[in-house]
Structures are given as C-alpha cells and as structure tokens.
Amino acid sequence: MSVIYTLSTAFIDTYNSFISTLPPLAQKFINLFLIVLLIVIYSIFIWKFYRFIATKDIIRLNLNRYNRAEHPLLAKLFAGIFYLLEYILILPFLIFFWFSIFTIFLIFLTENLAIENLLIISAIIIASIRMVSYYNEDLSKDLAKLLPFTLLAISIINPKFFDINRIFNNLSEITGFFNEIIIYLAFIIILEMILRFFDFIFSLFGLEDSPNIEER
C-alpha cells in the first residue's frame, strides 16, 4: 500500500507546484472547480446507484434455470447451490463494491475522521439500507438518498471543506481503507445471509408482502 501513498504524495507535490505558478484568481478558480467536480461526481454516484443498493433482489440472474437435474433430490440440491452462489456469494460482493466506493468518497469529503470511523459509518448506512429493503423498497430508496446527501450537506458547512489541499491529503488515507476492509466484507456477507434466511422463513408463512401495503 506504500505505492498508493507514494503516488498520492507525488500527485500533491505536482499539483502544488503547478498551482503556485498561477495568479491567485486562477488558483481560486481551479480549486473551486475541483471541489464542485467532486460534489457533482458524488451526487451522480448516489443518484445512479441508490436504486441498486436499495433493491431487495439486486441481481436477477436466475441461475436455477441452468438446473437440468431430473431427480427430485438432485434438483433441490442444485437449486440450493445456485441460490447460494447467486445470493450469498455474488450479491454481497456487489454490495461490497458500492460500500467501497461510498467509503472512498467519504474519505475525500470528511475531515478529522479516522478510517475506522468512516468504515463504520459506511457499514451502518449500507446495512440499514439493505435491511430496510427487505421490509419496503420504497422506504429503502428514500433512505439510500437521504443519508448520503445528508452527509454531503454536513461536510459542506464545514469551513475546511473548501481546502483543496485537505482533499488531496486524504488520498493517503486510502491505504488504511484497504488494510481495514476485510472485516466489513465478512460483515456484509453474514448480514445478507441472515436477511435471506429470514426472508425465506417469512415467505413460507406468506408474510413477506404484508409490510408493502400502501397506507390509505
């Protein structure tokens, strides 16, 4: 991970050397543009992916269609294997990808927060969205938009948010992100397994659709 730190340091030094050669007005313009660009990219990311993370069945591969077994026992066995592959292995990694990108954005947007705290914040938000999606997807989508944009609003009112050097210096924090991320991958996998288990139990008793009844 020292490679990332070295590259980030070299990038910061190059940027500072370049920006110092420009007039003060141009420096402010470029710094302001970069901050606006960061906010725009973050907003687009949330807008594009909030439906993804807030959907109960994110992927619809239907791997069971490849089940060609004719024997009832083998058919059930392969159905279980395909279900495990699709929802317990593939799905958590897709959620983990969203979690990783979101955490990296928080590294740039926030200040004076240790990487462990940022990972916890991201994990809490992602876990809350995923759990709510099993209850009501509309509520989950609202939550997936509200929480990230609230964090953005809180960051913007911080006076030091507009310090472009602070944002660049946070590049070095990404190394800590990779060092701490494994436990959160395990957390996401276990959480999704638990949610799928209870979803299966509720479906047996016909309870899975009851929370989605619209209020009148």
Rank of each mutant, 00 (worst) to 15 (best):
L34A: 11
I30M: 10
I126N: 07
L195Q: 08
L118D: 01
I125C: 03
F52A: 10
F105K: 03
I190C: 05
A123M: 12
F178Y: 11
L139V: 01
N212E: 13
T9Y: 03
D163N: 14
F178Q: 09
G206Q: 13
S155C: 10
I182R: 12
A75G: 02
L143H: 00
K145E: 07
I157M: 08
A26S: 10
I126T: 15
P23L: 05
I90T: 06
I53L: 10
I213G: 01
R130C: 03
I157V: 14
S20A: 13
L22E: 11
N158P: 03
S140Q: 03
I58A: 08
L34T: 06
G206K: 12
P24L: 02
F45P: 05
L118G: 06
F197I: 15
E137A: 10
I107D: 00
E215M: 11
I188C: 03
S203Q: 14
L94Q: 04
E86P: 05
F178H: 09
E208T: 14
I88V: 10
I174C: 06
N31I: 09
L91D: 11
Q27G: 09
T14L: 13
L91M: 14
T6L: 08
L152H: 11
D142K: 15
A186Y: 09
N165I: 09
G176V: 10
L34G: 03
F178G: 14
P211K: 11
S155N: 07
F102V: 03
I188D: 04
A123S: 15
I164E: 01
I12H: 11
F178N: 08
F177V: 05
L63H: 06
A75R: 14
